[in-house]
């Protein structure tokens, strides 16, 4: 039987890992390769690198980070952020990434998902969906897909969009609740459940993790196949091993750290 994956997410800006303004333990900010190797040792099942570099002239820096990670870290990793074309994806995969994640580019050009999937296989293609409730208190009103960190509303229904990108060839969905992101209030479990029920591919839960209980709920109540978190790891709040012990104690199957 397969295990639920624990995925630390690393935001990379100009070749360095950064995380928010509340960053307290500066030693963890550092080098993406060192951090990736540490997470591997601690038992992380996979890594996501999100290139948050604003300017396109920094893209080669990210490519170099990917090459260095691939040389030294032997667990799968996904690269997202600023990947706008099949060529962009190919460069990242050639540099050593196992998967690429499309977000805004897929909204602007849905066929990109189909082209990338045809070229590299669906197992290489993650579509990241940032979703916001139409009514914060009423899940029955549904969720809208947003881009640019929530600043741009797309008009797309998140559940329909999820089913559409899977039809186009996405092999996995990275679902982030923009209502919860950064709040430490836990995943939007209704959103996760709705997307899980509407699609046939694995779902990675993201956005809002503040405690280990939130990770457990993402799996047991949200139906997620993988749980992604950033700050609880980078801030030194919990190690991946602690996470896994907690999930295992709650009856969730994990790979031992």
């Amino acid at each position: 039987m397969s295990a639920v994956r624990i995925i630390p997410c690393l935001d990379v800006d100009a070749g360095r890992v950064v995380k928010g303004v509340r960053f307290v333990e500066i030693r963890d900010a550092g080098d993406p390769v060192e951090l990736a190797a540490r997470y591997d040792t601690e038992g992380a099942d996979e890594l996501v690198f999100l290139d948050i570099t604003a300017s396109s002239d920094q893209r080669d820096t990210m490519l170099h980070v990917v090459e260095r990670v691939a040389e030294q870290v032997f667990i799968p990793f996904t690269v997202g952020g600023g990947i706008r074309s099949v060529d962009d994806a190919r460069r990242m995969l050639r540099a050593g990434a196992d998967k690429v994640s499309f977000n805004t580019a897929a909204v602007n050009d849905p066929d990109l998902v189909a082209r990338a999937s045809a070229e590299f296989g669906d197992q290489c293609v993650v579509v990241a969906i940032d979703a916001r409730r139409r009514d914060a208190d009423d899940a029955s009103m549904g969720w809208e897909v947003v881009t640019h960190g929530g600043r741009t509303a797309t008009g797309l229904d998140a559940i329909e969009w999820a089913a559409e990108v899977v039809r186009l060839g996405a092999g996995e969905l990275l679902v982030t609740s923009m209502d919860r992101d950064g709040t430490k209030a836990g995943y939007d479990l209704e959103l996760l459940r709705a997307i899980e029920a509407a699609t046939t591919v694995p779902v990675i839960a993201s956005g809002g993790v503040g405690t280990l209980e939130h990770l457990v709920a993402g799996v047991t109540e949200g139906g997620a196949h993988a749980v992604l978190a950033a700050s609880i790891f980078h801030f030194g709040q919990h190690t991946v091993a602690e996470d896994k012990a907690h999930l295992a104690a709650a009856g969730v199957r994990v790979r031992p750290a």
Binding site: R5, Q123, V201, P202, A226
Partner: peptide, 13 residues
């Protein structure tokens, strides 16, 4: 079989 999510993207024993 399609009764599981596909692809299997997971660690397994």
């Amino acid at each position: 079989p399609a009764d599981e999510k596909l692809p299997q993207i997971a660690w397994n024993t």
